[in-house]
Structure formats: structure tokens, C-alpha cells
Design a binder for these strands. Structure first.
Ligand code: FES
Ligand code: FES
Lengths: 156, 156
DNA sequence: ACTATATAGTACTAAAATAGTCCTATATAC
DNA sequence: GTATATAGGACTATTTTAGTACTATATAGT
């Protein structure tokens, strides 16, 4: 389905909350209360985001987390990468030498191309865009309707 | 990691082979020999692709599979969708009513926006592009206005 | 220095999604 | 009629993801 993991989805919820209150330091338990995501899970996500410099942390009493950069300077690709690792559509396009038919393969290069196109699309959306009012979305749409509602699968 | 499944990768290998020999009907076992992917797996993939009209099938003796459309008319989004189901980045952006915080959620709309940008990028690549010699090729895709065009760079 | 508070790191378990296999039914060519 | 090939579905195994727990370390305030 080409989707981001639940943890990444949670991460976006957490970051959205933090971005809305940029002045304060946010503890893991504050964020649990604010988002409804379980504490150990919130904690795990915060650690991952800090490790990849999306957040900065302050230890000890009165500690917590804050954004490392302005919302406009953090993009969605960074967030996804922090939680899920490098974005790549196929095994082959990240690590070479693992595929049996690599030597005689001509599609690898083109998967790489697709991969790049996807990355570019994701990279272009910032955290600031994520927290922008949804109405802005309606104004922004300039592409044709793509996913037809009739195609939507309702989880089996 | 935001990747396609192994089955989708196999599908691209199989379709690439078929696209290179468009005149013939290809049986599942022919394709096993040609690609190295195990027979039951090849069979599963062929059925999925046929169901979604990427391939057409002919039953019985001398039967097999062929492309339903010209390579230039089959895009990568169709292939991914056939194997993995509708492309959507988050649970919430496909099915509404499943998310606990949906009523108070403001990021859902923007995930949908990202989803659309990714879909547009993938849709712009055809099977013909996949079998084309690897070279620098322009994959142009339009993205919503929220994406700044100055950031777009689809090349190496 | 002591203590309460909060993150860092890592290891582990549980759950879900994916991959892969197998069996039976049906259609077609000769 | 028989050999060949796809259609469909059910099933198991594997892998990945999600979620939890525990120990170590850093900081503020007293
Ligand atoms: S290199 Fe792995 S499929 Fe081409
Ligand atoms: S509706 Fe589910 S996170 Fe927003």
C-alpha cells in the first residue's frame, strides 16, 4: 500500500502539537496527555526524532523536547526517515550487491528514478505546511482527482 | 522505509520481461524460468495483475498472459495498486471513521495532500519508462501549489 | 551531596502484515 | 477425452512493525 508506518503517523501528530507550542519544553508524559499515544511509544518516537536532529532534548528535571529547527525548515522526508530509515522503494535501490539478478538487471536504475521522484515530492512538504489550516489545502489543489473513491479498499 | 513490497518488485521484473516480448503469450512457468521467481509466487502475481487489467489472460492449452495495454499506457501506480491495494500514506487518508482523534485532527488533510503528491509522482512513470535504457530522463509531474516549485529537482 | 525528574539506550515480547505454498475448479486446444 | 494452463481461495510460515520494560545518565533545586 505504500504507506508510512503508524509510528510515523504518531510522530506527525506529536510534532504538530509541539509546533503549535514552540516556546515550551515538552516532556514525554505531556505529549502522551496531549496526543493520546501511549507513553512508551511516545518516548520511543521522541528518541528517534532527537537522534536525527528533528528535535532537541534537555535532560533532567525541567527537561523535555523542543523543535531543533523552525517548522518551515523541517520537512516530511526528514520525519519519515527518522522513524523508518532511508526512503527507498526497493531493496535494490538502497543496497547494491544483494540482488541475485543485479548484473543483468535494467530496471534497477529506473526504480531509482521513481524513488527520487517520490522523495522529491515528500521533501517539498514542511512541518509548517502540515500545521497549516486545512482550508489552505482546498486552495492548493491543482492536480486532477486521482484516487477514485470506488477504488478504496476497506480493510479485510 | 516507504518501500514497495517484494511482490511489487517481482511484478516489475515480470512485466519488464513481458514488455520485451510483446508478441508472445507467456505462461507462468515460462516467466518462472525467465525471472527466477518461484512458480507459485509468479502465478499469484499474474493473477493479481490480470484482475486489475494490467494483463490479459488466455486459459487452456496454449494459453498464457500478455499485456492488456501498450507499455506506455500502463503506469507504475497501476502496478503498485494491483499488487498492494490503494496507495495511501496513512490509515486515516483512506478510511475515515477509524481514527480516535479524527474529529479534532487537522493534519489528516495535509497527509492526504502528501499522499496525492506521491501518487502523482508514481503515476507519471510508465512501464515503457521502466524498460527504457537507464539514462537521465525527465519525469515531470505536477504537485499541489503548497509544494514550492523551486525545490523540485528530478534528475541526477 | 541528595533527591526527584526526565531523557538515552537497549533488549525483549506481542501483534500484524507479508510472502509463499497448495489445492480444487474451470476453460481451451488438439 | 486429455493435457495444459489460468482462477480462486485457503492456508502456513516468515518477516516486519509495534509496543513494553528495564537500566543508565543527566539536570535542577534544595
Ligand atoms: S538489481 Fe535487483 S531486481 Fe534489479
Ligand atoms: S484523523 Fe487520524 S490522525 Fe488525524
Amino acid at each position: 500500500m505504500l504507506r508510512v508506518s503508524k509510528l510515523t503517523d504518531y510522530a506527525s501528530v506529536i510534532l504538530t502539537h509541539i509546533a503549535h507550542h514552540p516556546a515550551a519544553l515538552h516532556t514525554a508524559s505531556d505529549l502522551t496527555n496531549a496526543t493520546g499515544v501511549a507513553l512508551p511509544t511516545v518516548s520511543k518516537i521522541l528518541k528517534l526524532l532527537t537522534k536525527k536532529n528533528v528535535l532537541v532534548s534537555h535532560r533532567g528535571s525541567k527537561g523535555g523536547y523542543a523543535l531543533a529547527k523552525k517548522p518551515s525548515e523541517t520537512n516530511v522526508a526528514e520525519i519519515i526517515t527518522a522513524i523508518e530509515g532511508p526512503i527507498s522503494m526497493t531493496e535494490c535501490s538502497t543496497v547494491s550487491g544483494l540482488c541475485e539478478q543485479e548484473s543483468s538487471c535494467e530496471i534497477k536504475g529506473n526504480w531509482h528514478l521513481i524513488n527520487r521522484a517520490v522523495y522529491t515530492a515528500i521533501e517539498a512538504v514542511s512541518l509548517a505546511d502540515m500545521i497549516a489550516p486545512v482550508r489552505r489545502q482546498a486552495v492548493s489543489f491543482s492536480v486532477p482527482e486521482i484516487v477514485k473513491t470506488s477504488d478504496l479498499k476497506v480493510e479485510n
